[in-house]
Nucleic acid binder design. Structure first.
Lengths: 186, 186, 186, 186
DNA sequence: TATGAATGAGCCTTCATTCAT
DNA sequence: GATGAATGAAGGCTCATTCAT
């Protein structure tokens, strides 16, 4: 495995475990099994490394979701698939996803921040389009997507923090309900 | 105004503007108009200051909401009131609320973390009870509350980042819809 | 003695001994007998510390020279005095003087660089005025001053590097000659 | 053009533009259009590369000056020629010349430092001999040479920093005056 | 009660150098 | 001859915290 990938993997693990700021370049290098200088051989700095992680990760995710959706039939199944795949990702890379959707603004260079925000906007629009397809009014699309993704974040975090109380299928069910019938069954 | 209150006010402003980590003790002292040492006279450390802020702030908020709800009649109005008051708070103290609901985990002492989480759990339960009253299945209450609060966070953040696209009333409407009918109108 | 002065003293020693870049903040702190953080309590950064050193040092020097000159009578004595005092300074703070007159441009922030250059220009003009008083054509004043100060730097450096060959009085004599009769006696 | 020469050329440009320390091996390699490793194939290290540059450059210069001088007649013309050629060099390779005459001492290995100093001494003696021929007392020769070379450095730097104020011919004239009649016309 | 000078661990980054290919 | 990925020591700087007054 090449150094660059080892680093990106380690960074994903570290960021996902400890967040952006608490993951020091020393720790990432240690986790990746390379010297600290190697990080700077492959990336201009911490922020750009984060950006590469987001960009490359998101690309894979988007492609995965697109591929899965195309194979599905009913609208219901499509929404369920999108939810399931996203929740899987959230649960696997909880902190990283969390950072991506929330914490974007810390001591990061302006240009990197902009790039990451652009990625987030694009992903939000990607989800918005799916929601609009599913019947949500176009003018509500982007906000609804932002809302759903945040809710997903909140549910996953709650689930991870209360493993005994909550069940995995609850997450999917509540998300589906929020989109289709409301959390309150009628 | 006493030093302690000036500090707490300044901390709320700073945390709300720049987040927890980007607000340095120097800046908070400057904003409060006291010497840095004074912060440590009133609070054992930064984390404990944050904790005090959360605890005391939440107490006020909870009381406000309780008072408003008691005056309301219909279930619909109750939910709308809770949403409106919460959104108002989110929009005024966006970063601080954001921290409270999301970022809690950043190098903070374990005991403070626990205390803050406890506060959050209590608030989540407070909201959950209202939602259960509104017809949500009791076993879904806490998660639904977590989901709704996160969604609120996401919608407010989106609204603040896209002032031209989004409208304030959209936030309330989408939240209400997520609880009652689903984001997708039928 | 206050920390700030201890630091400035240590910095003068270190810069004078090893130049700007080879003097690390660690070493300066060690030499000053304070913690590294203390340097940053008193100065925003290394460059600003250097600037303070130059500014405050130059003020003292300028005042000393002015005081000595006023007491002198003949033009000849005035020039000799200026030369002697400057050479004394060069010999005591050789590297620092060297930096001030030469090395100004390394990795220093633009604004600090400008400030130091301004100081140098002012000092150059101060010397130029004296030279013009001494009979040098006004239009040659600033360049002649720059030339003489550099020559002084060169002679002092040579003297310090060849202690056995060169004599202190040679420096003064050659400088005086360069101004008045030419290095080549007629 | 062979790698070694491309590197030396690039190094001269970089050192001349940015000084010794601000020119990184990466930049030199980039400027030379070779890989970084190639630098280390041709030179043991940065310092030795610098040394080679000085040695080989100086050889050319010395030969050029010798050739020009032999063709001249009067003493006056000889001095003027030496001055002119040297000033030309200073203006073309300002930073590099500056380093050669001034900054030599920056974290460079002791042996390289010694070698460069030796080169400088030789060049100084070369100039000293010319000055002695021109009538300067032999015992003043080396110091006078050091003084003149430094003055030249100072005048050229001043000229480059104040392109609007100063004129090129002023440099030569002042230098000639310093040697022959004194800066102050009688 | 309040101050502010002083601290030092920890962080991100730079860069000359090495070495397997 | 030449390459470029990898290294690690060293540097400048931040900031929560301490403490004498």
């Amino acid at each position: 495995m090449m150094s660059r990938d080892k680093i990106l993997d380690a960074a994903a693990r570290m960021f996902s475990r400890s967040g952006y700021h608490r993951s020091s370049m020393d720790e990432i290098a240690l986790e990746a099994g390379v010297a600290k200088g190697t990080l700077y051989y492959h990336f201009p700095g911490k922020a750009q490394m984060f950006q590469a992680l987001i960009t490359e990760g998101l690309q894979m995710i988007t492609e995965t979701i697109k591929a899965e959706i195309d194979r599905d039939r009913s609208l219901r199944e499509q929404i369920e698939t999108v939810i399931r795949l996203n929740v899987d990702l959230f649960l696997e890379y909880s902190e990283l996803a969390h950072i991506f959707f929330n914490e974007i603004s810390n001591g990061i260079e302006e240009d990197v921040l902009l790039a990451v925000r652009k990625e987030r906007s694009a992903y939000n629009q990607f989800i918005a389009d799916i929601l609009i397809d599913a019947g949500i009014p176009p003018e509500d699309g982007p906000m609804a997507a932002a809302g759903i993704l945040s809710m997903m974040d909140g549910l996953c975090s709650y689930y991870l923090r209360h493993p005994s109380e909550a069940k995995r299928e609850q997450i999917d069910r509540l998300l589906y309900a929020a989109v289709t019938t409301g959390l309150r069954p009628m």
